[in-house]
Design a protein around this nucleic acid. Structure first.
Lengths: 321, 321
DNA sequence: CCTCCTTATGCTCAAAGTGAGCATTTATAG
DNA sequence: CTATAAATGCTCACTTTGAGCATAAGGAGG
């Protein structure tokens, strides 16, 4: 039973690293089998700030030191308790959780405590447009969404649904906006295309295949929020360098950016913009294992932050194929 | 187990409207005299979501219907309780507050319940660069900050402080970045230049004059967060129209944008960009009371949201004077 | 050593977008 | 009828983008 409004605040961390080709996410096993985001309670008595609390239990639980950390959003919709109860052992109380995004350059360090690194596109297959439009969209998502739009009660609602679909997934001539990760997930959830939706409604039948791996509770929603934020942020603040090693080649940096934004970049134009930004400087050293001409190793110029109105990196989309 | 420290979640609303020349903020009186943001507790038993809770008590307290609402940030640093206790009558418990930004077009509606509309630059005089660089910066802020930098223990720290100052206030050749409202407020707080800093530290001596009106608790920090967010957001999402009336002249729209971003815009270029964006369309009707040639009344084209990758309005800065 | 393949880097060109400012039009106030 | 105040129109030089072609420098295979 809910006491006199018992409230528990949980802290959720979306911990991201990028391993050349795949954006990696730290997940921990949960009771129900579905992976979960690292989760820890906020203790009002001992934690002076949320961030301190977060760093503390992440270092305890995952033996992992967080670097860059940023608050995402506070989730508190009713109905999240049931699935959360198992995770936290806090039956009955209202749980609200504050999501955080953390970036780290090291995936080498396999976190202890049961956590594992997982490609985030495993949870969002429709978000990876690097090689081409993900097949699930045409084969599963678009048809199911259109069916849902057709089922709407009135012609007005039908149009509203169609618009939402067009905007979220860039269908019918609209361009794909990679930042709408959360919009897309919420739409899929509402339409019942992701396993979590069926689970939360207590429905027995399974969601269609190919819709990504489910996560515990509403963690996939939190992850979607994190991806949206990160995809937007790399463009207006040089946060990518938080997940780059000390030295890197420009191709490596490009692959990391592509892994994040989810689409291929035009190499020459990416470099030109990078060059103008002044964010990187050559070290003179070379990386030989490229399989072709050796590439120069670059380094992030921290001073650049003090020079201009620190923006992010350009992401010139590569068109065609 | 989870610390059983009592936790209370409060909801704070930064409710903004723009009255032609001044961005208006809804404030309520607080016990200590300093104005406060409308504040209400989140009731875990009856409020299904935060937003519902927020709308509910705003409509109860201020007899005011909120339109556009967006979550800002969750504040929970320890040390906010003392000043908050008076406001909320919740002594002893740890209070965390979730800040929301709400936009509304109507200031005509003078809110009941003791709330009043106040120009937000009253609380942030140094943020208003519309007519010229605010005098306080050169007369009070810059000298005090430089003094603070000079007092640093080591040369390294001194440089770090100087950098922070340069970046936050755009001094020494750096350009003023209007979005760093929160950075600036936090710097001023840390240095002790705003009344709240002295109050929170229990110091008796007053902060320098001209540093804006203090607010209750950490409300000025929340307001700074809101301004930062809004200034950034108008540029990448057409949220301005949430505070515009149904019909408006382009000059009116420009004045509202200027009120928000805090600097003057280049009229012709602003219009050209607006025109290209397709966000507005002429209605054919005219507004006569301009004091010069009558201006056409325009209207927001909601459909525009469905056409492009909905961005915001351009803010071409007007240089010189 | 020579040739082919692969990835890194350089450079060019046209189209689009920006920053500044001059020029016209249409009211209102003497 | 004239001076003023805004609203609108339009130009021009300069940057920034979008697309691609061209060259350079390793390794692998003959």
């Amino acid at each position: 039973m809910i006491g006199s409004g018992a409230l528990i605040v949980g802290l959720n961390a979306v911990i991201v690293a990028v391993d050349e080709d795949a954006p990696q996410l730290l997940v921990v096993p949960s009771g129900e089998g579905a992976p979960a985001l690292p989760f820890g309670p906020f203790d009002p008595k001992t934690h002076r700030t949320f961030e301190i609390g977060l760093r503390e239990w992440v270092s305890e639980q995952a033996h992992f030191q967080l670097g860059y950390v940023e608050q995402l959003y506070t989730f508190g919709d009713m109905g999240r308790e049931a699935p959360l109860a198992e995770l936290t052992g806090t039956d009955g109380a209202r749980v609200i959780s504050i999501g955080y995004l953390a970036l780290t350059p090291d995936t080498s360090n396999p976190p202890e405590g049961g956590g594992v690194w997982r490609d985030w596109y495993r949870f969002f297959p429709w978000e990876d447009w690097r090689s081409s439009e993900p097949a699930v969209i045409a084969s599963v998502i678009a048809p199911a969404l259109r069916r849902w739009a057709d089922e709407a009660g009135s012609p007005g609602k039908r149009e509203a649904r169609r618009d939402r679909i067009r905007i979220a997934f860039g269908l019918d001539g609209m361009t794909w906006n990679e930042e709408r990760v959360l919009d897309r997930y919420e739409l899929l959830y509402e339409v019942g295309l992701v396993p979590e939706a069926r689970r939360d409604r207590g429905e027995a039948d399974a969601a269609p295949a190919g819709m990504g791996e489910a996560m515990a509770s509403d963690h996939r929603r939190i992850l979607a929020t994190a991806i949206s934020r990160l995809r937007a942020k790399v463009k207006y603040r040089p946060v990518v360098f938080e997940i780059m090693p000390e030295r890197f080649t420009l191709s490596h940096l490009q692959r990391v950016m592509e892994a994040i934004v989810g689409y291929p970049l035009h190499k020459q134009n990416f470099r030109r913009a990078l060059d103008r930004s002044g964010f990187v400087e050559g070290t003179g050293r070379m990386e030989a294992r490229t399989g072709g001409r050796p590439a120069e190793l670059f380094r992030f110029r921290r001073e650049a932050l003090r020079e201009g109105p620190a923006s992010g990196l350009a992401t010139p989309r590569l068109n065609q194929s």
